[in-house]
Write a protein that binds this DNA or RNA. Structure first.
Lengths: 335, 335
DNA sequence: TTTATTTACGACAACGTTGTCGTAGCTTTT
DNA sequence: AAAAGCTACGACAACGTTGTCGTAAATAAA
């Protein structure tokens, strides 16, 4: 069932029918009603492939993220999808698996009109950004969220990672920690660095001398990360507080503490960024900095659609910073 | 940059260029190389909108699921996406939010060639299946996974929910439970029913008389679910074992036990279906039946691509059942 | 040499829709 | 009553690609 057939049924030209369906002012109300009725009767729907092609608009956006096995990106997708559904857009999903090569390949795919806009959260590995510049040059609306980058200049939706880095660290200090370690997840990652800078700033404010030996650089190699954390906790003067930049490092630390028979929070206190709702039920319950993931998805999608619809270049106003919250639980309880 | 411009640069007709790019046997190797080189030089990429339209193939599949805020669907998407990436297909994602009306609306959207195939896991509410029959009638390749339905007849990828229902229940019995409650998540949902039937079978095998008062019908209303579970645990002869059909009900039970000062596992033992990797770190660590979510995504995607590529009607062989595993932890420990 | 066959390319017509333009018939203005 | 404008529709040309068909030139078979 296509326009031509529908037009034949109605004894109208197919261009009239097309216009009637799109509520053009050129068509009389009578005709419009006739067409609409018939279209419904015959269950006519426009061919989206033809329509997209003709208009060179796909009504589709791409979401490029590292993973979904994670309590953060799940709700983010939820938020994005909810806005997309309101706008009757479609959502393509691409996973980089924290691999920059895949990220490059994916951006390559998205350069030819397949999508009307792109939302990205960068992989841990992403250092070079020429593939992102290429998107920008092609004029494809682009929004970064959470894991952002300075260049190219595109709207960003983030949380107050720096401030929360300070808050989390000061929370450990207030709980009595003297030697606080920071578990970083990537040198390249904006969020990891911002959280670390917050950590460093908090130490400074509280006259604690930063110790580079207490900054552990982790990455996507879980086995290696475990070794690194183990090494940290086996030291003679091991830290009495740990600030993990991402949840998986905190959970690894839990496991290692169990193995080393270190008591949390007595021997070592732990705080982490996390969106897991089970944090409250861990043993002991885990103090977290929790990001408003769903809202972040919604905000980022809203910004993207503003870009798509208004064709306005990204205004600086569109750099949105949302507030995360620190939820103190037993993993940082002072005796 | 399109075919015509590329052809002009090469002094060839655009149909020759098109064929060369698709490695047609009609074109000489020399010409092919020339074309390929020039295409690379000028960074030519086919217009996916035009190509899809012409071929009436979108190289896109849709994944329709209830939610992503969940440790099950995350890895499933991961699995699906990994196969799609291998086949260079694109993945659209649609969330029903456990709402049948949305599910119907989404299936409506997918009927006009926007996607070459669909993978679905049904919403809790889905009782009527005419919208699914409609997809089937349109001849769109369709695969169900996890939350399936008998009609229409389409390939299904599931886990051995019935057997695991037995296993989980017998595990509670072996741990000393005499009164085992089952927390159902939906009357309509295949997985919930299969798990319950396993539960009932296990009771029968062990000569325990099933008690309908011990079967609690939960749904997507979390507040109501809490009330129901509370009511269950406040009874005079409260159960000493609880088998939750989904993780969120188990976590709710944890919370309620804490409030009611019931000790897990002493007063009540708990087992649940769950894919959360934090289950091991809960207080107490939670005994789970864990589904192979990633593999499920991969298997289901593989079946869908078989359907798409071979155009073979679904053979009964394509009903794949994967095995979940029971991981015994402290929530079911007998003293 | 003549006739088939193959090779390598070009011409061209779709695919279904959208938007521009043309126009017949009517209404309003001068 | 002639000129101008408006209303409601149809004709038609795109959009960029793909696949079918036609056909010179080269090669092979007769």
């Amino acid at each position: 069932m296509n326009l031509k057939q529908l037009a034949k049924e109605l004894n109208l030209s197919f261009s009239t029918v097309s216009k009637a369906l799109r509520d053009s002012h050129e068509i009389s109300t009578d005709t419009k009603n006739r067409v609409l009725a018939k279209a419904k009767e015959l269950n006519y729907q426009v061919n989206p492939l033809a329509s997209s092609f003709r208009k060179q608009k796909s009504r589709t956006i791409a979401v490029v993220i590292p993973e979904v096995v994670n309590d953060f990106f799940g709700p983010v997708i939820n938020g994005i999808e909810s806005i997309a559904q309101e706008k009757s857009y479609h959502v393509l999903i691409y996973l980089t698996h924290e691999d920059m090569q895949k990220e490059v390949a994916i951006t390559q795919l998205l350069q030819n009109g397949r999508v009307d806009g792109i939302m990205m959260s960068l992989s841990e590995q992403t250092s070079d950004t020429t593939h992102l510049e290429a998107l920008k040059e092609k004029g494809i609306p682009l929004v970064f969220f959470d894991r952002t980058v300075d260049q190219p200049d595109a709207p960003k939706v983030t949380t107050d990672d720096y401030n929360c880095g300070i808050k989390a660290t000061e929370h450990l200090i207030e709980s009595g920690c003297k030697q606080i370690a920071f578990l970083s997840i990537s040198q390249h990652l904006s969020i990891s660095n911002k959280r670390m800078n917050g950590y460093l700033e908090a130490l400074k404010k509280n006259n604690i001398k930063p110790d580079s030996a207490l900054i552990v650089s982790c990455d996507s190699d879980d086995a290696k990360n475990n070794e690194r954390i183990q090494e940290l906790l086996k030291r003679e003067n091991r830290p009495d507080g740990i600030f993990a930049s991402v949840e998986k490092l905190a959970v690894s630390t839990y496991k290692i503490c169990e193995e080393l028979r270190l008591n949390i929070p007595k021997d070592v206190k732990i705080v982490t960024f996390s969106n897991s709702y089970t944090a409250a039920f861990l043993n002991p319950s885990l103090t977290t900095v929790t990001q408003p993931a769903y809202e972040m998805g919604r905000e980022a999608a809203a910004v993207l659609f503003k870009l798509i619809e208004k064709k306005k270049p990204a205004s600086p106003i569109d750099n949105i910073v949302l507030n995360s919250i620190l939820i103190a639980r037993n993993s940082t309880k002072s005796e």
